[in-house]
């Protein structure tokens, strides 16, 4: 469990997530044909957006990074 908590607190993971987010938010432009009534594109954007939010929520609640803790907390 602590492995996952540590991962959520790692700066490298944040950068990785940022890159994945960029890819996700641009993906329909490289893949989906010009279907103006394509409801999939609509839900794809909001679903990927929601996924990022959920990961951020988990970071807020569960992330753990020894370097982020103040001296008082370490005590």
């Amino acid at each position: 469990m602590n492995k996952w908590r540590n991962l959520l607190g790692k700066i490298e993971f944040h950068f990785f997530l940022a890159i994945i987010t960029v890819l996700a938010f641009c993906w329909p432009f490289f893949t989906t044909p010009n279907l103006s009534n394509n409801i999939f594109v609509f839900y794809f954007f909001f679903a990927s957006w929601l996924t990022v939010i959920v990961i951020h929520f988990l970071m807020d609640r569960f992330s753990f990074d020894e370097n982020d803790r103040t001296d008082e907390e370490k005590k």
């Binding site: 944040h14 997530l17 940022a18 987010t21 938010f25 990022v52 951020h56």
Partner: peptide, 8 residues
């Protein structure tokens, strides 16, 4: 949303 990923 992308920028916020790096806010910490």
């Amino acid at each position: 949303t992308i920028a916020i990923v790096l806010w910490w």
